Deep mutational scan, measured.
Amino acid sequence: MASDGVVVEIGKVTGSVGTTVEIPVYFRGVPSKGIANCDFVFRYDPNVLEIIGIDPGDIIVDPNPTKSFDTAIYPDRKIIVFLFAEDSGTGAYAITKDGVFAKIRATVKSSAPGYITFDEVGGFADNDLVEQKVSFIDGGVNVGNATPTKGATPTNTATPTK
């Protein structure tokens, strides 16, 4: 695992066909100046998982989280898009600690492993708008004895992609 920078880890949970599971997305290594904004994309298989919603985690402190935390689910493109932009203008609602960034709610549709993997990152910046190093650890849903650990090695991303 990367020793510096922010680590975004997609949790690994267990479920069975027809059940709804909650998959946490963790941030670790949050910089001392916090995270003022970030955007990134995960990939998944809508034939295996139906993403039914995404909720902000406990490290989102904006009293009205829909102003700073936004997501979009595109089953036709097989992606989930995340956007966080601190909304106070003063840094008061920045992410300042490690913990759960988001909770992905999904219904298991198939007995195949439900991988959720890193696809791309736009950027991560602290309260001074300084770009942060970030790496990703894939996860998803274990169905029966299947284990979604494909790509469990962190993917280092030093520069934003478009």
Rank of each mutant, 00 (worst) to 15 (best):
I80E: 15
P24W: 09
S32N: 06
N156K: 10
T153A: 10
F124K: 00
F42L: 07
V13Y: 08
D119Q: 06
K103Y: 15
Y74N: 00
A158S: 12
P46H: 09
N145S: 09
K67T: 14
R105S: 13
T90F: 15
G99C: 06
T147A: 12
I116G: 03
G57W: 13
Y115K: 06
T107K: 09
G11C: 13
G34L: 06
D4G: 04
I137D: 13
T159H: 13
L83N: 01
A112I: 12
A106W: 07
N37K: 01
K133F: 08
C38G: 14
G91W: 01
S3W: 09
T19H: 12
E22A: 06
V25E: 02
G15F: 05
V13D: 05
V30D: 03
Y44N: 04
A158C: 13
I137W: 10
P154R: 11
D58V: 09
D126V: 01
V143A: 12
F82Q: 07
I79M: 12
V134R: 03
Y44G: 11
T117F: 05
N127V: 02
K97E: 10
G89V: 07
P24E: 04
F40A: 03
L83S: 01
F84E: 06
D126E: 01
D119K: 03
T96W: 10
V100E: 12
G89K: 00
V48W: 15
D62Y: 15
D119G: 06
T14W: 01
V121F: 01
A36Q: 01
P75W: 07
N47S: 07
E9G: 11
G18S: 08
T19Q: 04
I54F: 02
V134Q: 03
V81L: 01
L83D: 02
A94R: 08
D119V: 04
V6P: 06
G57R: 15
L83T: 00
D87A: 15
V108M: 14
V134L: 03
A106H: 09
A125E: 01
S135I: 06
D119I: 05
Y44L: 03
V21R: 09
I54S: 03
V100H: 07
T66V: 14
T107S: 10
N127G: 03
T71A: 02
F118M: 15
S3F: 13
E131K: 01
D62W: 14
Y93W: 14
F40Q: 03
K150I: 08
C38I: 00
F69K: 01
G123D: 00
V41T: 01
V143L: 12
N142S: 12
D62F: 15
V21A: 06
I73E: 12
S32I: 11
T155E: 07
P148N: 03
I10T: 07
G140D: 11
I59Y: 07
P24L: 03
S16C: 04
I35A: 08
V30N: 15
K109Y: 08
G122F: 00
L83G: 01
V141T: 12
A85L: 13
G18D: 08
S110I: 05
T155D: 06
N145I: 14
L83V: 01
I116D: 01
A85S: 03
G99I: 09
V100Y: 04
P24I: 05
T159K: 13
F124E: 00
P31N: 05
F124A: 00
V7L: 10
P63F: 14
V130L: 07
G99W: 09
F124V: 02
N64F: 05
N64T: 11
D62A: 15
F118I: 02
D126H: 01
E50K: 15
R77M: 02
I54M: 03
V21T: 09
A85D: 00
V6I: 15
P160H: 14
D98K: 15
V21Q: 05
T155H: 10
G89R: 01
D58A: 06
T96N: 04
V100C: 07
F40L: 02
F101V: 09
L83M: 02
K97A: 11
S3E: 10
N47C: 09
D4W: 05
L129R: 01
A158Y: 13
S88G: 15
P148T: 05
T14R: 09
P148Y: 03
R28V: 06
D70V: 15
I116S: 09
V81Y: 01
C38R: 00
T117L: 09
D62P: 14
A36E: 01
D126G: 02
V25P: 03
L129I: 14
T161P: 09
S135F: 06
I104T: 11
I52D: 05
F27T: 11
C38M: 01
V143Q: 14
S68P: 15
G122W: 00
I23L: 11
P31A: 04
F82L: 03
T161G: 08
D76N: 02
G15H: 13
K12N: 04
A102C: 13
Q132K: 08
Y115P: 08
S111L: 10
G18W: 03
I80S: 14
F84C: 02
K67P: 14
I73C: 07
G114S: 06
G114F: 07
T90N: 06
P160L: 12
K12P: 06
D70A: 15
F118S: 07
I116F: 04
A102P: 00
A146F: 05
V7I: 15
V17S: 08
E120V: 03
G57C: 11
N156L: 11
T159D: 15
T107G: 12
D128N: 04
V41E: 00
I73D: 03
G91A: 14
V25A: 06
N64H: 06
D70T: 12
V48F: 04
K103L: 11
F84P: 00
A125Q: 00
I60E: 15
R77D: 04
